[in-house]
Amino acid sequence: MIFSSKEEYKEVFEEYYNPLCNFAFKFVNSADAAEDIVQEVFVQMWQKRNQINIKSGIKSYLFQSTRNKAIETIRRSKLKNDYVNEELYKSEKSYEIEVEADNYLLKEQLNKSIRQLPPKCQQIFVLSKMNGLTYGEIAEELNLSVKTVENQIGRGLKLLRGMLTKMRSDNENK
């Protein structure tokens, strides 16, 4: 049995749902289709929880299942047969899936952490790191000094480092 309780299932769902949707989107180029695929993976996993034997870990299982379900969806809708074959070829090695899974999870952790920054720090950090504005452009746009922008970026990086380190240690303890 994969899950000993509904709470355990819920934790896995909450941790992996968004990264899996982003991963599925890569295959189907539709947010709705990606969500449908991930929901179907979770429903099937719950329904077959007593029969599934996961050998390589829940993360690998979920990302591999999502990949397979996405390819199945593409095949069913007869979209770009060449694309499917190319993606199948690219995705053959399981370590590639593992690396991609880690990348999607890391992006999700980073986004969660950025949303936890103090509002002004978050705004300045996003303008700099996500939108690519220079410190001078941010200072001008927000009517601040360049030094204030520098301080907020430094503060944001320090807070993010702490949050991501804590998340990593929490994940290692699971």
Rank of each mutant, 00 (worst) to 15 (best):
Q116H: 03
K90M: 09
E11Q: 14
N103P: 00
V149F: 07
A24G: 04
Y61G: 08
K10C: 05
L88P: 06
K158S: 15
I153C: 08
K55H: 08
C21H: 01
I74Q: 06
R49K: 15
K120P: 00
I153K: 01
L159G: 02
S60D: 10
W46P: 00
K120M: 13
V99Y: 11
V28S: 04
E137N: 08
E98H: 10
E172W: 08
R75E: 12
K55A: 08
L157H: 08
I153M: 01
E92K: 14
K174Y: 11
K26L: 11
Q51G: 06
C21W: 03
E87Q: 10
K147D: 15
L164S: 01
S169E: 14
E92F: 06
L142V: 02
I114K: 02
F63Y: 05
Y61V: 10
E87M: 13
K10R: 13
R49P: 05
I114R: 00
K48L: 11
E141K: 11
R76D: 02
Y83I: 15
E35I: 05
T66G: 02
N18A: 09
K166Q: 12
G57E: 08
E141P: 01
T134S: 15
C121S: 13
I54S: 03
R155K: 11
L160Y: 03
S4V: 11
I52C: 03
I54K: 06
V41P: 00
K48D: 07
E35H: 04
S30T: 09
E40S: 12
S30G: 04
R76N: 06
A101L: 12
L144K: 03
L110R: 06
K90Q: 09
N173I: 10
N68Y: 08
K174D: 10
Y9I: 10
I138S: 02
S60R: 06
C121R: 04
K69Q: 07
V41S: 03
M130C: 15
N151G: 02
E86F: 14
V84L: 14
G162F: 13
M45Q: 01
M1G: 12
M163K: 08
L144V: 08
E92I: 15
V41I: 09
A33T: 13
L79P: 02
Q123T: 07
A34F: 00
E100D: 14
S56K: 12
L117S: 05
E141F: 03
N81Y: 06
M130G: 09
N81C: 07
P19R: 00
A33I: 10
Y89V: 06
Q39T: 12
W46M: 05
R76F: 14
N29Y: 07
Y9G: 03
Q109I: 07
K90H: 08
E100S: 09
A34W: 01
C21V: 15
N171E: 15
K120S: 05
F23Y: 15
S91K: 07
P118N: 07
Q152C: 07
N85P: 00
G162R: 14
Y17C: 00
D82T: 14
M163A: 04
Q122G: 00
C121E: 14
V38S: 01
Y16F: 15
